[in-house]
C-alpha cells in the first residue's frame, strides 16, 4: 500500500496534529504503542488539558507526572504525561528564580494564567519545552531516558504557531531563561530528530486543512512527517465491481446465488438493501479516492488506518498500532 515508506529511525520526537474530529489523539496513542514495540520506552504527552490519554487508555485521570499507561509487545512501555502550562511555569520559576512559596500565592492570584494569557507564546514555550526536555533527557550520557516521545499537539489550524515558538516569543524578553528555553526547543524541533505528522480523514475539509497545514509547516521550516489517513472505509471490491455498484447494475443472478450459498434468503428486500449499501459504499470509495489523490501530491509518506465499526477500545488501539508497524513504522 505504502510506496513511500517513512524512515523515522532518527526521529525521537513525533508531533501528532490533525483537524478536530479526525482522531488525532487516538492516532498519537497508537503511534506511541507502535514505537514501543520491541522493548522500547516511549513517552506520550498531551497539552490540551482534557485528560484525553486517560480516556483512551481507560484509566483514572493522570497526575502531572510521567506514569506508565500501557505495555507493548516484547516488554515495551508507554508512559504518559498530561502537561499543564501552569505547573510547568511554576517549575521554571522555581528552577530559575528560586520562587517556590511565592509560586503558590501567584497561582492563587491567577497570575500564572494571566502571564500565559497576555503572552500567548509563553504557554507554547512551556509546553513544547517539556517535550524537548524529555527528548534530551539522558542524551548527554549516551542513555536517553526515552527512545521516543510522542506529542499529542494542538489541531492543524494552530500547529505551526505552536511549534514555531521562537517567532512567537520574538516580541517578548530578549534574554533570560525563557529565551534560552525557546532557542533550545527550536534546536530540537527544527532538527531531523523531529517529525510532524498530520492526521486526516478522506473528506474535503480535513484534507484541505492538511494541505494548508503542510504548506504552513514547510514555509516555517519545520520537519514534516507522515500524513496519517484515519478511518478509511475499505473493502475488497475491485474497480469494476465498484463501478457496477455505483450504477446499480450488480448482476442479480450472482447476488442471488451467493446469498443462497451463504444460507441467506435472497428476498427482494435483501437484494435491494445490499444493492443500496453497495452504491453508498461506491460513492464513498469514489470520494475517498479523489481526496487520496489530492494528498498524494504532497510527497509526504502516507499511512492508512481502517475505520473500526466497533469504535476505539484498548484492543482496537493495539490493532491500529499493528497497522502502523505493517506500513513501515518505525522505519
Amino acid at each position: 500500500m505504502n510506496v513511500r515508506a517513512p524512515n523515522w529511525s532518527r526521529v525521537r520526537l513525533h508531533v501528532v496534529s490533525g483537524k478536530g474530529g479526525t482522531g488525532k489523539s487516538t492516532v498519537a496513542a497508537a503511534l506511541a504503542l507502535a514505537l514501543a514495540r520491541g522493548g522500547k520506552k516511549v513517552l506520550l504527552l498531551e497539552v490540551e488539558g482534557r485528560q484525553g490519554i486517560a480516556q483512551i487508555f481507560d484509566t483514572a485521570p493522570l497526575p502531572y507526572q510521567e506514569s506508565k499507561v500501557a505495555v507493548a509487545e516484547d516488554g515495551g512501555i508507554v508512559y504518559a504525561l498530561p502537561v499543564d502550562a501552569e505547573a510547568a511555569m511554576l517549575e521554571y520559576l522555581e528552577m530559575f528564580y528560586g520562587i517556590k512559596r511565592g509560586g503558590y500565592a501567584l497561582r492563587r492570584l491567577g497570575a500564572i494564567d494571566f502571564a500565559t494569557t497576555i503572552a500567548p507564546g509563553l504557554r507554547d514555550v512551556l509546553l513544547t519545552g517539556k517535550a524537548s526536555e524529555a527528548v534530551k533527557r539522558g542524551e548527554k550520557v549516551g542513555r536517553p531516558a526515552y527512545d521516543a516521545v510522542v506529542l499529542d499537539a494542538p489541531p492543524t489550524g494552530r500547529i505551526t504557531r505552536f511549534l514555531n515558538v521562537n517567532t512567537e516569543i520574538a516580541g517578548l524578553a530578549k534574554v533570560g531563561p525563557i529565551r534560552t528555553q525557546a532557542d533550545s526547543v527550536m534546536g530540537v524541533i527544527r532538527s531531523a530528530r523531529t517529525a510532524v505528522h498530520l492526521v486526516t480523514l478522506l473528506e474535503e475539509m480535513p484534507v484541505q486543512e492538511t494541505l494548508d497545514g503542510l504548506a504552513e509547516l514547510r514555509a516555517a521550516g519545520l520537519p514534516l512527517g507522515a500524513v496519517v489517513i484515519n478511518q478509511v472505509r475499505g473493502s475488497q471490491l475491485d474497480d469494476e465491481q465498484l463501478r457496477l455498484a455505483a450504477e446499480r447494475a450488480l448482476p442479480e443472478s450472482v447476488l442471488k446465488k451467493g446469498l443462497r450459498a451463504a444460507a441467506i434468503d435472497p428476498t427482494a428486500a435483501t437484494l435491494r438493501a445490499l444493492a443500496d449499501e453497495a452504491a453508498d459504499h461506491a460513492a464513498r470509495a469514489a470520494l475517498q479516492n479523489s481526496e487520496r489523490r489530492r494528498l498524494a501530491q504532497t510527497d509526504q509518506p502516507i499511512l492508512e488506518l481502517p475505520l473500526l465499526p466497533g469504535g476505539i477500545d484498548l484492543a482496537a488501539l493495539y490493532g491500529l498500532s499493528e497497522a502502523m508497524t505493517e506500513q513501515g513504522l518505525p522505519g
Binding site: S235, Q236, A262
Partner: peptide, 16 residues
C-alpha cells in the same frame, strides 16, 4: 460460509 467463493456477495455481507 462462502469460504472464499462468491467474492462479491461475501464483500457485500461484510460491508453490511
Amino acid at each position: 460460509r462462502l469460504n472464499g467463493e462468491h467474492h462479491l456477495v461475501a464483500e457485500l455481507l461484510k460491508l453490511h
